[in-house]
Amino acid sequence: MAANEVPRIQIATAVLVRDGLILLAHRHPQRHAYADRWSFVGGHVDPGESPGEAVARECLEEIGVQIHHPVPFPMTVDNPDLEMHAFLVTQWTGDPSNAAPEEHDELGWFHPSALATLRMAHPESVPGILTAVRRATGTTGPVSAADGVPRTDR
């Protein structure tokens, strides 16, 4: 990194998949960043913490589950200040519930095709997420006619 470069903010996020559905968290309308948008469970990577450790901690803090065998995958975001570390999670202990109501006002399980219709925090990440989910679930082809072309008006 050059002397005048600002370090990127390290974010670790989990895409939990169960029975072909994806868990999303709706960011509280009072949040500073990406308020009133759907996103995945996750947050900042703390100093001295690996992205894998961070995503495990965030899942425990935000939804009360202990994740097992998170699989990293590339996640594209348009914010140049962020470096995303995304993990696909298909195994965990516990039942996801909103353990951080100050961060999220709702959790929901969505069919992958629904991501294109929701107001997502990072809509540009949807195509890569859908590809990772297809690989993990063994499905092929598009998950919808709008496969990964998210709307931002909802």
Rank of each mutant, 00 (worst) to 15 (best):
A2N: 11
A3R: 13
A3T: 08
A3F: 12
N4T: 11
N4K: 11
E5N: 05
V6Y: 00
R8H: 00
R8M: 14
I9W: 00
I11D: 01
A12I: 07
A12D: 01
T13H: 02
A14K: 04
A14S: 14
A14P: 04
A14M: 04
V15Q: 06
V17C: 03
V17G: 05
V17K: 11
G20A: 09
L21K: 15
I22T: 05
A25N: 08
H26C: 06
R27L: 12
R27H: 10
F40E: 10
V41H: 03
G42V: 01
H44T: 11
H44K: 14
V45C: 10
D46Q: 15
D46M: 15
D46F: 13
P47F: 07
G48V: 11
G48C: 09
P51N: 09
P51H: 09
P51K: 06
E53D: 13
V55E: 05
V55D: 04
R57L: 01
E58L: 07
E62F: 00
E62N: 07
E62K: 14
E62R: 07
V65P: 10
I67H: 05
I67Q: 03
H68V: 12
V71F: 00
V71W: 03
F73Q: 04
F73K: 02
F73E: 01
M75V: 13
T76I: 13
V77T: 14
V77L: 04
V77M: 05
D78K: 01
P80N: 08
A86T: 08
Q91R: 15
G94E: 07
D95I: 15
P96N: 08
P101F: 14
E103P: 00
D105F: 08
H111G: 02
H111K: 12
L115W: 09
A116K: 01
R119K: 11
H122T: 10
P123K: 01
S125E: 09
V126C: 04
P127A: 11
L130N: 06
L130T: 04
T131R: 14
V133M: 05
V133A: 06
R135A: 15
R135P: 00
G138H: 10
G138C: 03
T139A: 09
S144F: 04
S144L: 00
A146W: 14
A146V: 08
D147Q: 03
D147W: 09
G148L: 12
G148H: 06
V149K: 12
P150T: 03
P150V: 06
T152F: 04
T152R: 06
R154Y: 09
